[in-house]
Amino acid sequence: MDKNLSLFTQINSLSYWLLNETHFKSSVSLDASDDSFFISIKNGAESIYKHHIEDFSKKDKRFLRFELSSIVMHLLEIKKTVQESTPKVS
């Protein structure tokens, strides 16, 4: 499987988890007409995280993989913070 596709899957899964398990609103957009990728995580009106990749199809694959990996790492850190702040049920 293409590594970038795998990273997209992780980004979508983490965004869905945040949407489903928290009060955060997540938005992921791959816009072919604008040739861009955008992700946004908000808590009400407050932006928690956002990242925009312009000229998406023209990016070097290794650099794109680095950027997507960075997004995954940020989302994992947000998830970890949410899980640590949630009281555990015994």
Rank of each mutant, 00 (worst) to 15 (best):
I41D: 03
I48Q: 01
K80C: 02
A32M: 13
H51N: 15
L5V: 15
F8D: 08
V28G: 04
E54V: 08
I48Y: 01
S69L: 07
E54H: 10
R62D: 12
S47W: 00
S36Y: 02
K88F: 11
E67P: 02
I41Q: 00
L75F: 03
E67V: 06
V72K: 06
E54T: 10
H51R: 15
H74M: 13
D31N: 13
N12E: 15
M73V: 09
A32N: 14
L14W: 00
N4E: 13
D34S: 07
S69E: 11
E67T: 03
T86V: 12
F63E: 12
L64G: 08
S6E: 14
F38H: 14
L76W: 01
L18Q: 01
V28C: 05
S40Y: 06
L19N: 15
S27R: 15
N12A: 14
V82E: 05
I78P: 00
I39Q: 04
D34Y: 05
T86M: 10
L76G: 05
T81M: 07
D60S: 12
D31V: 03
H23V: 07
S70L: 05
D35T: 01
K58L: 15
I48N: 03
M1L: 10
S69H: 07
I78H: 02
E77G: 06
S6D: 12
N20H: 14
R62A: 14
S27G: 01
M73E: 14
V28Q: 03
K59D: 05
E54Q: 12
K3H: 11
F37T: 01
S29W: 06
E67K: 09
F66Y: 14
H51D: 13
P87V: 10
S15P: 02
S47R: 10
H52F: 08
D60A: 09
D55E: 13
D34H: 05
L19I: 00
N20G: 04
V82K: 04
S90C: 11
